Amino acid sequence: MGRSAIEARRRAALEEGNVGYLARRQEIIQAAKNVFRERGFEATLRDVAEVLGTDRASLYYYVGSKDELLQEIVREALARDIAAAKAVQKSKASTPDKIRELILSMVKSYSDNYPHMNVNTEDLRRYSHEKSDWAVEVITQTREYEAIVMSILNKGRTEKTLRRDLPVNVSALALFGMINWMHRWYRPTYPVAPEEIARTFAEIYLSGYAATE
């Protein structure tokens, strides 16, 4: 069967939304996540197929490429990140404690979703110039997350638990820059636990940004 015919079957199956088909597709995505984590994004579809005990050709009925697998993994991770940020936003904790929770959730996301979030961060600038549905979606999700963080920081300024003499947009960029730079050095073998990384980041950030009596 030609590639175009397989693609047509895959699109039709996705539109139909059969429970069994979607469950198998999710199983493949989860297997790919584990393979990429263990072997890096250099791993191939053949590696994923071997883990599942099938052949690479069989995967094409469910996913079109390794890039599509990455996109699905990142889409799910970003959705979880947004849900976590919204939960922090709605909590009754103080703004500094909300920032600590945000930082912990971001660091944990890098750790739990390695190397997918690393690849996503490296490619984010390229996405911003693309017009594909995937590029639009990931940029929209990123902007939604940024808006939640900005809302939390602005509330802290209003409540005077954060400094008001520092530009909030620059302060937000400092927070994102600190976390996103992890793609340059974080690996699962890094000798410091994600929780300790998050605590360190929070202490450094709030030491300069939290308001003092």
Rank of each mutant, 00 (worst) to 15 (best):
V48H: 10
F201G: 08
E72R: 15
K86N: 03
S207L: 02
P115K: 05
N169P: 00
A172W: 10
Y186C: 05
E7Q: 13
I148N: 03
P96S: 07
V192S: 02
S91G: 15
H183R: 10
M106F: 12
K160I: 04
E159K: 12
I99W: 10
E68H: 11
D165G: 12
A202Q: 09
K90G: 04
A193V: 02
Y60M: 04
R3F: 09
S109R: 15
A49K: 09
L59Q: 10
R39E: 09
R80M: 03
E7P: 00
I82A: 08
E122V: 08
W181K: 05
K98H: 10
A172C: 13
A23M: 09
E68A: 00
H116K: 01
R3L: 12
N154P: 00
M117K: 14
S105Q: 07
E159W: 01
E159Y: 02
T44Q: 07
R164I: 13
S58H: 14
N18F: 00
A202P: 10
L162V: 11
Y145P: 00
N169R: 11
R126P: 00
E146H: 06
E16G: 00
K33S: 13
V74T: 08
M150R: 15
V119T: 01
H116I: 00
I73Y: 03
R39Q: 15
V192L: 10
W134V: 01
V35F: 05
A85M: 07
S94D: 11
R100C: 11
Q71Y: 14
I82M: 07
K160C: 02
S171N: 11
M106S: 14
D55E: 14
L45W: 12
Y61N: 07
N34S: 14
E42Q: 14
G53E: 08
R37L: 01
R37E: 05
V149F: 02
L45V: 10
E137Q: 13
E137P: 01
D47W: 05
S91I: 13
H116G: 12
S94R: 10
R37V: 00
N118V: 01
R199Q: 13
L102H: 01
M106K: 11
L162Q: 13
M1Q: 11
D97Y: 06
T54R: 10
T142N: 13
S207W: 05
V149C: 10
K131M: 04
P188N: 10
H183Y: 12
L59K: 10
V138N: 08
I148Q: 06
